[in-house]
């Protein structure tokens, strides 16, 4: 059997410089992307928080509106109670007032012309109209 010699491997080429991207430019872009992603992430979280906060504020404001509406209702009721003829009658009675038992109508002088209206207004002849109730 003939001896065989081992094949001789070609020597590897030496290290060479590969022209490529600048390391500093790659880093800035990646950092920028990362920063943008982080900013978007926090922005999203902040917007959610802001929305939630606004929702709670709306809830609180709705509560305040409801409270004010309730207060308005009670004031409206109070006004209506104060306007009640029954209350006014009792108050008037306590002040010594009575319903007139007879009335007297005082007829106002009717001016014949617009000049007369001016004259009547400029004199001290007293009120034009009067309603008299005699107790």
């Amino acid at each position: 059997m003939a001896a065989r010699t081992a094949p001789v491997r070609a020597p590897r080429s030496a290290l060479r410089v590969i022209p490529g991207r600048s390391t500093s430019r790659v880093g800035i872009r990646q950092l920028g992307t990362l920063a943008l992603a982080i900013a978007m992430f926090f922005g999203l979280i902040y917007s959610r928080i802001a929305l939630d906060r606004a929702a709670f504020q709306i809830t609180n404001l709705e509560g305040l509106i409801s409270e004010q509406e309730s207060r308005f209702d009670e004031l409206r009721l109070e006004v209506a109670q104060l306007e009640s003829p029954q209350r006014i009658y009792i108050e008037a009675q306590s002040m010594g007032m009575v319903l007139p038992t007879e009335g007297r109508t005082v007829h106002a002088p009717m001016p014949a012309s617009s000049d007369e209206v001016g004259e009547l207004a400029s004199t001290d002849s007293g009120p034009l109209l009067a309603t008299v109730g005699a107790p």
Binding site: S66, S70, L77, A80, Q81, E83, S84, P85, Q86
Partner: peptide, 13 residues
Amino acid sequence: VAEPKRVYPSGDL
């Protein structure tokens, strides 16, 4: 809880 209430401010009027 809030509920609507009917009221008659002049009483028996």
